[in-house]
């Protein structure tokens, strides 16, 4: 049990550091950044209660906001993602989720990609809408959401696959 908690704490700190020092400064083509810190919310243990997940996600988002001077944009998006995670899990994993038997380290890659994609698009849409906060700039919101989502999905799926221990 302690081992699991320690893993998650280390993952939390590492993801925040990587996000604020590297990923926020990529600016591919001038504006495209991946937001990989959501991996933490995605891989949070399913058996733990949703209350814990909500609180930890809020803390995670707030930390990212603190580092990037963005008000509460990341916190809001993370909390929404944390709250809707069961629905996304059910849609992408189906029966596996019903029986609470998903192991992220050895799931089918197809299911994993669906899961990451749904979560990323939801998270990024809320985040960029709040960041730009102007309905007349809807094209800009959609553009940023689309390109950043693609980047985030690719990087996140790669990270999850590379760092899971026992994938066949």
């Amino acid at each position: 049990m302690n081992n699991v908690v320690a893993t998650h704490i280390i993952r939390f700190i590492l993801l925040v550091l990587i996000q604020v020092t590297i990923c926020n400064n990529i600016n591919f083509l001038g504006f495209i950044n991946p937001y990989i810190y959501i991996i933490f919310i995605l891989l949070f243990p399913i058996r733990d209660t949703r209350i814990q997940l909500l609180l930890v996600s809020f803390l995670l988002g707030m930390l990212i906001d603190l580092f990037s001077d963005s008000g509460g944009v990341h916190a809001a998006a993370s909390v929404v993602l944390a709250y809707t995670r069961p629905v996304i899990l059910k849609t992408s994993f189906g029966m596996l989720y019903e029986h609470k038997t998903i192991k992220f380290s050895n799931t089918d890659v197809g299911h994993l990609i669906t899961y990451v994609t749904l979560a990323t698009i939801l998270h990024h849409t809320i985040m960029f809408s709040l960041e730009i906060f102007n309905v007349s700039n809807i094209i800009l919101i959609l553009k940023k959401t689309l390109f950043s989502s693609i980047f985030t999905i690719i990087v996140s799926v790669l990270i999850i696959i590379l760092f899971s221990r026992n994938r066949k």
């Binding site: 809020f58 988002g61 707030m62 906001d65 008000g71 509460g72 944009v73 916190a75 809001a76 909390v79 929404v80 709250y83 709040l130 906060f133």
Partner: peptide, 8 residues
């Protein structure tokens, strides 16, 4: 969500 929205 309310807190983060208020901060935003």
């Amino acid at each position: 969500f309310g807190i983060s929205l208020a901060l935003t």
